[in-house]
Design a protein around this nucleic acid. Structure first.
Lengths: 349, 349
DNA sequence: TTGTACGCGTTATCAA
DNA sequence: TTGATAACGCGTACAA
């Protein structure tokens, strides 16, 4: 009943060649005469041969599989970049075994162990739970994405420039004071650069500014409450100034926008808002939100290039491990929409 | 330089047992004496053994890998359900090779071929491009999710009930007329049920209703234009009636809400809106949108159960293929928020 | 309870 | 240009 798969042995028997020759047909076709190529090609069709990569892998060690560990796919940023990464299959031919971490270190270690058991050729880590030092110890090509990356290669957005861009647009849109609201992030994660960029731009341009480092809660409802409170405070403090607010992400920017909209029925010219991420909510908001977008497609491609560089090195007879991890930085894109735009430019409504 | 992996042979040599015994340590530990178990356990640690699933698979055929083909991860619905599916790893121990289709049939066929080359045990198909008849022909356990499923097992939401729930809530919230806006979908895709459910509820309850089957465009900007036009028409037609509008998804519902909000600065009591999907935008809107949510977690689990049932059957000595494909239907959840709620209930603002 | 011998389907090595 | 043979690492009859 079990239909056995057709193997090289069957093709060999059918054509009268050896298994070796059949193998060569796939891996170095030009070493056979054209006629013999045709013979084998025909046999493959007639017997309906289907390739078996596992056997191939066992023999030569190349799985063409890359492992990915992502915190979740619920947040748009992650699903977006994963989408781009797995779409590189067309270009680079690597397949992806995907694990969704749950923030638990031991669980994610288990994932890695499992991935190693399948002889994956490399790992892409978007999760933040395992320190890069440990990642490096697995002795496998790794690329960290937008996370702490001291000991491994990485790709990240130029968050500092993002901060500059945001501050700059707010100023151009006529703000007297600009405020950045963010969580009190650790200095070694890329997001910290946003705060730095924001500050540096304001300081070197003598712009009145303020950075508010505060937790806005861990779910949407908490976010709403906290942002409402925050806005109430800001209204009192800066009632006489055109106020630019750079929120840490689009979700928060949108909540702020909604708070204001519910109060005023519109966004008063007194307020300018910037988000970060260019996630769908920034377009879908009552009023399209100006934001900083990561070049997710570029990042995905960089990730694969940095990974492939490492994986290819390992395939050489005398691999030379990298002396220092490579860190790629991708420029973010300023996206002007309706909540902040240069005062003398026309803008859609 | 190449550090060879430790194999059963090494463990065997070290402990003085045979490879077979080492193998048994993993697959049937109780067949060894406790002391010998300990001996091997220790050797494994000392030599730092790492399991090699590929070799195992080549020997016994069980990859514990399931292939997934999804249209994209950009849309929240897909990333959400994929997230839940891959999270079942904890429960069922299957790993997932993920491909993102691009709507091209040949490309997706190539994906399937690749998946088969890795001896995957089953496939989960969310993409709509390949007809179920062809999927069935691959002679591999398959589960289709929320798509045409005539010839393969499937899991889908009870769209009909979703339509009923939406219409019902709109009526309860005081509408004189209820309108359903949807694309002119084919009768064999689950989404068609929504239209049916909506109609049936209205007819059997003598509710004035209308179904508008129209294309709203293929991108956000087109959507906005079309929905704006649509709303203008509806305003003229039903100016004297409390109008309930059930949009085909939350994104469209949100756009409609925004159109209304920009015009009135609020949602006039004259209008009630329902979305579908419970996607993030429905919560993040200026006004939380009432919607119909799919029980994505339940669906993910059902998917795996239906798949595992088929995969387990194949592992038996005398597998009995299913006579008829199994179709699981999951009840949707009515989510009352602020754009439609029973008139005599209190509601948050 | 443990071991021997072979198979899984391919690639690599060496020889012809 | 082609072939024979030995890996790759593990599971599984079958034997002891």
């Amino acid at each position: 009943m079990e239909k056995k798969n057709v193997t090289f042995a069957d093709i060999a028997k059918y054509t009268g060649f050896s298994k070796t020759t059949v193998s060569r047909y796939f891996n170095d076709p030009d070493s056979l005469t054209v006629e013999n190529q045709d013979k084998i090609a025909e046999a493959l069709k007639i017997l309906d041969y289907k390739e078996n990569k596992l056997a191939k892998v066992l023999a030569n060690g190349k799985t063409e599989i890359v492992g990915i560990i992502v915190p979740n796919l619920y947040m748009h940023y992650y699903s977006d970049i994963i989408n781009h990464i797995i779409s590189t299959y067309e270009k680079y031919n690597y397949k992806f075994l995907l694990f969704s971490g749950n923030g638990n270190v031991d669980t994610e270690r288990k994932y890695i162990k499992e991935l190693l058991a399948y002889n994956i050729e490399g790992m892409i880590i978007l999760s933040h739970t395992i320190p890069s030092e440990e990642l490096a110890s697995y002795d496998l090509p790794v690329v960290a994405v937008e996370r702490e990356d001291k000991h491994v290669c990485s790709v990240k957005t130029d968050n500092c420039m993002g901060g500059v861009q945001a501050a700059s647009l707010l100023v151009k849109s006529g703000c007297d004071i600009v405020i950045h609201v963010n969580a009190d992030v650790s200095t070694d994660v890329p997001a910290y650069g946003r705060i730095q960029g924001f500050k540096e731009f304001c300081e070197s341009n003598n712009v009145e500014h303020r950075v508010i480092l505060t937790e806005l809660g861990n779910n949407f409802d908490e976010n709403c409450r906290e942002i409402e409170k925050l806005f109430a405070e800001l209204e009192e403090l800066y009632s006489d100034k055109v106020t630019g607010i750079f929120m840490s992400n689009d979700t928060h920017a949108n909540i702020l926008l909604n708070v204001i909209f519910r109060k005023y029925g519109k966004l008063p010219p007194k307020y300018k808002i910037m988000g970060f991420d260019d996630s769908p909510v920034s377009r879908e908001a009552v009023m399209p939100i100006s934001t900083i977008g990561q070049q997710v497609d570029v990042m995905a491609d960089e990730v694969m290039q940095v990974l492939i560089m490492q994986m290819d090195e390992r395939k050489k007879r005398r691999p030379q491990p990298l002396k220092e991890p490579v860190h790629k930085v991708v420029t973010p894109i300023l996206i002007q929409r309706d909540t902040a735009y240069p005062i003398n430019s026309s803008q859609s409504m």
